[in-house]
Design a protein around this nucleic acid. Structure first.
Length: 314
DNA sequence: GATTGACCTCG
DNA sequence: GAGGTCAAT
């Protein structure tokens, strides 16, 4: 059994969502509400939405706009005030994991000067609780590429198959696996997935062929979920670990990307510096991370990644 | 098991 | 070259 991360316990405010939807159709007079963050609820919204864990957030001045679970959401932060529109407080709190005792968590992973520097760099950064299927397809699109390209692919997929988002008809929700059931390889190529198009096609087929696939993935233990993810074409260990961390609530997942590899090589595992990252070397790096940082190693990974310039410069 | 090369697309 | 993965040695 997992702690409740994947399954919503927040879906209570349908009526308010509808209201904000009707408010915005006349050009943006949607209501903005405010969450007053407690001392014990540190949040760095810019780091959280800008660190590359999710691909549908854009910063517009001091304000972030994104689409989550079919809703167009706007967020901005001034100190201890978190302003939001397009959603309701329980959803925002859940998505941003504000219920998590971050100070305690960071104290638990703060085990050496390197991670300490990374924590000092972006205290308040939180791991989002993302919708599973969108996260899965996003990281399938994210191999051997850069963030702007991933964003463009994800936007394109939403543009073709997504329903209009609640709160802004001009924006599209990310489609469900079912909505993509008939998407062809060429369709995905048209969304600039390139050689990933057949992977996306097959992954969607596999997921659709078993209606309980997504639900079971959320219920199954870490290792089992990882194996099921990696059974999908185009999902290797790195993408699987990202999905485990960002969508399935396995906070001990520790994805090894090129930056984490550099950081580990420089500060922890000199042997990791050279050569190709074979599956067994990947596993070694991953278990090092989990051993060193413990049950919340994924948070350590995100903080290290976000301090990559600091930790990798000469 | 480890290593190598190919691969769409974009800034 | 980029926040990898796959198939073939």
């Amino acid at each position: 059994m997992r702690p409740a991360c994947a399954e919503p316990s927040y879906s209570s405010a349908g009526s308010r969502t509808r209201c904000s939807s009707s408010c915005v159709s006349n050009g943006g007079t949607r209501t903005t509400e405010t969450i007053r963050l407690a001392e014990s609820e540190p949040l760095d919204l810019d780091a959280t939405l800008g660190c590359g864990q999710a691909f549908r957030w854009r910063r517009d001045g001091g304000r972030w706009e994104g689409v989550v679970d079919g809703r167009c959401i706007r967020l901005s932060q001034r100190g201890g005030l978190l302003h939001y529109s397009g959603s309701d407080e329980p959803f925002v709190r859940h998505y941003l994991a504000l219920d998590l005792d971050l100070d305690r968590l960071l104290a638990a992973i703060d085990r050496d000067p390197v991670i300490e520097a990374a924590i000092d760099r972006s205290r308040g950064l939180r791991v989002l609780r993302q919708p599973l299927f969108e996260c899965l397809l996003s990281f399938l699109c994210a191999t051997n590429t850069n963030i702007p390209a991933v964003q463009s692919r994800v936007e394109a997929i939403a543009g073709v198959w997504g329903e209009p988002a609640v709160g802004d008809e001009n924006v599209r929700a990310f489609p469900s696996s079912t909505a993509l059931r008939h998407a062809t390889e060429d369709d995905f190529r048209a969304c600039r997935l390139g050689y990933r198009a057949p992977y996306a096609r097959s992954a969607v087929t596999a997921i659709c062929s078993d209606p309980s696939w997504e639900g079971e993935l959320s219920a199954v233990p870490h290792d089992e979920a990882r194996a099921r993810l990696m059974a999908l074409p185009g999902i290797g260990p790195k993408a699987a670990d990202c999905i485990l961390l960002y969508a399935l609530g396995h906070l001990d997942a520790f994805p090894i990307d090129v930056w984490i590899r550099r950081i580990l090589a420089r500060h922890y595992l000199p042997d990791l510096d050279t050569g190709t990252l074979s599956p067994s070397r990947y596993e070694a790096a991953r278990s090092f991370g989990r051993d060193r940082f413990g049950a919340h190693a994924g948070y350590a990974q995100v903080y290290l990644f976000n301090a990559r310039d600091l930790l990798c410069r000469d």
